[in-house]
Design a protein around this nucleic acid. Structure first.
Lengths: 207, 207
DNA sequence: GGCCGCTCTAAGCGCCCGCTCACTGTCGGC
DNA sequence: GCCGACAGTGAGCGGGCGCTTAGAGCGGCC
């Protein structure tokens, strides 16, 4: 995997788990609409229209518009967590694992920027309970990256002023890729992933 | 200056140029509302209410709700640009100037996160002409930072794989502070500024 | 003192929002 | 061949939206 599964216009990575077909089409339409205009500026009529259905059809598969965002957000965060956990669990030095984590995480944010934008920037549009659940997933994301950095510090590979602050900065850097990345721009997702892995290693490596 | 001019609840740095008084109160109310809920989820009734006025009063000072966002965005970007230009123009090595630029820029995003959040994340809610103007200001921001990095590369202080990509990463890192920074969290704006200046110098410094 | 100009309000227009409901078409099981 | 189950539709509801308008209050100027 990496970027092969993404298409130019609207990426849709692994929504295969969403069934039935109509529910998946609605969800993909919602991802595209939310990414383009934001949650609040997107109408249920727009989502249904993109999926080739009437506005009422949305409510057969989802209780509310917010449930759509919630489902998108949860699936996206689980995918992000899986990517990071895979990198963290591999064999190798802390530096190799961190580089792997950053490059694959960035690749996901760049290649799947439509999804990533919704997942990372529309959190505040969720209600309190849904948001609390997603915040829990984010804490796990943070813990995985912090774990790698702590390993590197323990082994003497890394030297950082503030583990928690550095972890936050690394994640912030990766996540923000979804905001500025443009598939028509000068870099491929792979190139940004490599550049960022290099930058992050410089941030943590002992001199 | 730095963080002294900010208050705990809703920061308002230098809206002094906005007159008359009622227009300024409306603008500050709009900044707070946009930062909390986003542009599209904010109603003109909410803005007017926060300013202690009737909904209609808004339209005496501003043609539309979008004009409010435009004004906020322009003033904010001009302030950001001024901060970076001041740091870029000072005496010293490229490393000193870059550290100064990053720490003061981050301090502004952390201390004035209410304003910064609107300025940095609501750009897409502007119409085409207004957005084009703001994008122009952003290009100037990018040019200032890229200039410092190029100076450092020319003098041999810095060693980077990709000047343009590194510039983008540095700015992305600073800007994203507005998204996650919390005044009640473990760091002050000054501390984050210092930490980030250190991280950025590591990103660009020759080994 | 009378009038103009400016700021601001109460009321409300027209529109489109999220969502609902009565109904239709279709398809598998007997 | 009929029937229940259910995905999907067309029409439309209550409400809140951005914005407008008619007019009130009031300070400055001759």
């Amino acid at each position: 995997m990496s970027t092969a599964e993404e298409t130019a216009g609207g990426d849709q990575a692994g929504w295969g788990e969403v069934t039935p077909d109509a529910a998946r089409r609605l969800l993909i339409a919602a991802v595209e609409a939310f990414a383009e205009r934001g949650y609040h500026a997107t109408t249920t009529r727009d989502i249904a229209g993109r999926a080739g259905m009437s506005p009422a059809a949305l409510y057969i598969h989802y209780k509310t518009k917010e449930e759509l965002l919630h489902r998108i957000s949860r699936i996206g965060h689980e995918k992000a967590l899986e990517i990071l956990r895979t990198a963290a669990a591999r064999e190798g030095t802390a530096a190799e694992r961190l580089a792997d984590a950053v490059s694959s995480f960035v690749r996901w944010h760049a290649g799947g920027r439509t999804t990533a934008r919704v997942v990372q920037y529309e959190l505040d549009s969720l209600g309190p309970e849904a948001r609390a659940e997603i915040v829990g997933l984010r804490r796990q994301v943070d813990a995985v990256v912090r774990g790698i950095i702590e390993d590197g510090v323990a082994s003497g590979e890394f030297e950082v002023r503030d583990v928690r602050g550095t972890t936050l900065a690394v994640l912030s850097l990766c996540v923000d890729v979804a905001r500025w990345f443009n598939i028509d721009g000068p870099w491929t997702p792979d190139e940004v992933g490599e550049l960022y892995a290099d930058l992050v290693l410089r941030m943590v490596t002992a001199k």
